[in-house]
Structure formats: structure tokens, C-alpha cells
Write a protein that binds this DNA or RNA. Structure first.
Lengths: 160, 160
DNA sequence: GCGTTCGTTTAGAATGTACTGAACGTTAGG
DNA sequence: CCTAACGTTCAGTACATTCTAAACGAACGC
């Protein structure tokens, strides 16, 4: 049987997120939760729809949960839970990029400390890099805040 | 024999860049070129200093070259070439992040197209994400330009 | 024109990663 | 208490990646 368009979309998101450090299976889960109907699904549903083992779904959801991309909610009536993507999941994801920049800046500092003379021409390559990442590190949070106030606040949206 | 501080630094950079999609060996090469003395080194020197095979260094330098992080220069006198890191290597690297954002935005668009009604509440999660990445995609180039004019131009630096 | 040095390419080995499947708690209803 | 549904954990396997080593090509000095 041909996989559905929705299924293939989840697959694509999985591939993309894999290239960003997540595993394909976990990215697939996130992709599916972005478009699935109903938007909240149980472990069994996810496992079935995506052809993943219960184990993969279980650990996958835990990982996504700890990253703040997904959340468990108690399912009313039936026992057990149901998972759904958080409204700002991908914003959360994008915001995290800032940490990477900080790590690189730290590496540049360490490199400079290694050279005899931080002011020598030889140290130029490291100084420029450090200053660049320091700049990014400083500006990115401002950018995020700008988006929040210009967009989210204007539209009166929250993340529950 | 205990590895030198420089060698260990290269190693660290390798690990970090590996977490960003590069392979450890290639990241190691870049790390070494950031701090080594002399700053331009031959394939044989790199291979020896870092304990990598000639093959790894050869392909690694080609990859780094195509990414604009490193360049070959003809060595005067002796036959053969010599490699050095470009002054703005890590800036180049950081700037490339913008492409990732564009790819994610495209994915969000595709997701929206998959839903029956793009304006439905169900589509909210995707709309917000799309708008966020579009915002970032728009703002990041401005930020890079800002850095160039405020820092590089002020200091009168170029990348040859 | 040969020998030597420099660099590239590729097959293969070693290592690491992602996912499954099955065994194991846990909770709730009958 | 017993059974069944639900979820978690973990050992093992299949797969992919990374690096090496060795064969190969190209350029220069003699």
C-alpha cells in the first residue's frame, strides 16, 4: 500500500530534523504531530500510523518532551495519555540554536588563550571569529524577543 | 607521548564541529589550522601533526575548501601546495545557518498546504512556525550585514 | 625518459548509531 | 486477586559512517 501524503510529510520532516541532530524516527514523530488529525494521539496510534515500534515512540516522546517540543496530556475517559505538539515547538527549536553559538565562541576564546600573544597578527583569525560569535550571541535573543512582541503578542497568542 | 595542548585543542574543535554535521577529522583539521604555527601547512605536515592518514587530509581539505573555510595556496620554492584557514572561516560557517531556516520554513509551507483549511485552528501550530522562520530568514542577513559594517569595515579588514 | 615526491581515489575494516522486539513494571477494572 | 491495557527499558541487530591503507596518477628534478 502506498503511504499517505501525511505519512510522507512526517517522513520528510524526519529527514530534515535528522540533519539537524535529531534521529529520523523522532523527527518523524514531530512531523506527524504537526499535521495529524486528531492533533492529540496516543502511543499506540503513533506507533501504528508511523510504523514505529512502541519502544521508539516511547523514548522519542520523552526526548521531544524534554526539549519542550511536545507534551503529554491525560486523556479524559480512557486511561493513559495522549501526546500533542506544543504550539511553539519549532520556535523553541530555533531558539536553541543560540546555545551553539555560545559554545563556538567559547572555543574561540580557548584558542586565543592558547596563543602566546593574543594581539599578534597570527591571532587575527581567532579574534574575528570570537567577536562574530559574541555579536550573534548578543543579538539573537533580541531578535527572538522582537518576534514575540511583534507577532505573538499582537495576535494574542500564548503557549499554554 | 602526551599530546600537545594545540593538538588537544584541534581535537576539541573536531568534536564540536562533528556535532554540527561535519566529521571529527575534518573539524580537527580546521581546529588545527586556527592555531598552528606556521599558519600555512602542507598535507604531510597536517597528516603528521594530527595523526590522520594522507587520504583523510586530502579529502578533508577538499571539503573544507568547497565550504570556503580553507584555501590552498601554491607554496613558493618547493613544489606542492600549502593549506591555510580563511580569515573569516567561522563567520562563513555561521552565516550558512540561514539556509537551514529557509529549509524549515519551506517544510512548514508544505505542511500547511497539506491541511484542508489553512486558516483553521488546527493549522495554528504550522502558521506560527512558518511565520517565525520567515521572520528569522528575513532578519538574519540584516544581522550579518550589520556585523560586517560595524566591525569588519571599521577595522578595515578584508578576506583577501 | 626514469625516479621521487605530492596528492587523489577507492575498497575495506572498525566503529558508532538507530531501531526493534521482548521482558518487565504499573495501574485500573472486574 | 487476576487479568488486561499501557508504558518503559534494554539487549541485540541491522545499518550507516568514518577513517585508513594501499594502489594509482601527475608533476618536477636529474
Amino acid at each position: 500500500m502506498e503511504p499517505s501524503r501525511e505519512r510522507r510529510y512526517a517522513e520528510e520532516v524526519g529527514v530534515k530534523l535528522a540533519s539537524l541532530g535529531m534521529t529520523p524516527a523522532y523527527g518523524k514523530l514531530l512531523g506527524w504531530l504537526l499535521i495529524c488529525d486528531p492533533p492529540s494521539q496516543s502511543l499506540a496510534q503513533l506507533s501504528g500510523s508511523l510504523g514505529l515500534s512502541k519502544g521508539s515512540v516511547s523514548t522519542g516522546m520523552r526526548v521531544l518532551d524534554r526539549l519542550g517540543l511536545v507534551r503529554r496530556v491525560a486523556a479524559p475517559g480512557t486511561r493513559g495519555h495522549v501526546y500533542e505538539v506544543t504550539p511553539n515547538a519549532l520556535i523553541e527549536l530555533g531558539s536553541r540554536a543560540g546555545e551553539q553559538y555560545a559554545a563556538i565562541r567559547a572555543l574561540m576564546e580557548r584558542g586565543l588563550a592558547l596563543l602566546d600573544d593574543e594581539d599578534s597578527p597570527r591571532a587575527e583569525r581567532l579574534r574575528v571569529s570570537r567577536d562574530f560569535y559574541a555579536f550573534i550571541e548578543r543579538e539573537v535573543p533580541k531578535l527572538l524577543e522582537q518576534f514575540r512582541s511583534e507577532y505573538l503578542r499582537r495576535e494574542g497568542k500564548g503557549d499554554g
